[in-house]
């Protein structure tokens, strides 16, 4: 039986004050296992980004709990939580957020630098991961000289360079054409996912649903269904 990677229990989040107060996430609960790709899908404003932020330890829920591989993350102190994210969670942001003034390989090395690894050692390790994503020959270029798909792969290399067991993708195909999006998801499934890693993807791109192991639908802040991919298709 697959081991539980993420367990979210009755997560609630409110934003705003008075009449503008909105319940962004309403008692959301789910479990995601190691070795699977878990999708959070839903229309804009459905609360999936808020839920993703609470799961990844960057937005504190008003109530409920998140457990990642037996660690209740919201019981950790601020610094402990930062260390937890650094060591256990890899992020691929929708806009990649690569530093344009650093080279590609330096961007990839950032998590290792934050982990106080020696500069040269971190660069060598980052080069190895750039090779994995097929961009070793672009190592010394600044990210803005790369195509959208290449930047996405650089962001993936940065996310996995510290070997996290949870990978979080925020709209990974939003800026890519259909073919490139599928290639990226195929790469994630074939090369990045393994039995000790859980990949969480927030998307509303139905073209890539085929790569999901589980799909959780959200609407108006509430989890409506958790289905496997065959049911969605």
């Amino acid at each position: 039986m697959a081991k539980t990677a993420i367990s979210a229990h009755q997560l609630v989040k409110w934003f705003g004050e008075g009449d503008a107060r909105t319940n962004a996430v309403k008692a959301a609960s789910f479990e995601a296992n190691f070795g699977e790709i878990f999708y959070l899908v839903g229309p804009s404003g459905s609360g999936k980004t808020t839920l993703l932020s609470m799961i990844s330890g960057i937005l504190k829920p008003d109530s409920g709990s998140v457990t990642i591989d037996s660690t209740a993350i919201w019981t950790l102190s601020k610094d402990e939580l930062a260390d937890f994210r650094l060591n256990r969670i890899g992020f691929v942001f929708q806009d990649y957020h690569l530093f344009p003034r650093l080279t590609t390989v330096e961007n990839v090395a950032i998590p290792l630098i934050l982990k106080q690894r020696d500069w040269d050692e971190a660069i060598q390790e980052a080069l190895r991961y750039l090779e994995i994503v097929g961009l070793k020959d672009r190592a010394q270029l600044p990210p803005f000289k790369l195509s959208g798909g290449e930047q996405q792969r650089v962001a993936i290399a940065r996310a996995i360079v510290s070997q996290p067991d949870i990978l979080i993708f925020d709209e990974p195909t939003a800026s890519l054409d259909g073919d490139t999006g599928k290639k990226i998801m195929s790469f994630i499934k074939d090369e990045i996912l393994n039995e000790n890693r859980c990949v969480l993807v927030v998307t509303h791109d139905s073209r890539i649903f085929e790569y999901a192991d589980k799909i959780m639908k959200m609407e108006d802040g509430a989890v409506t269904t958790i289905e496997n991919k065959s049911e969605v298709k």
Partner: peptide
């Protein structure tokens, strides 16, 4: 201009003091 990048660094695990 680099604010979103600093935000990304925070998300990745950089501490405020760093």
């Amino acid at each position: 201009e680099n604010l979103d990048k600093f935000g990304a660094l925070k998300a990745i695990g950089a501490k405020s003091r760093e």
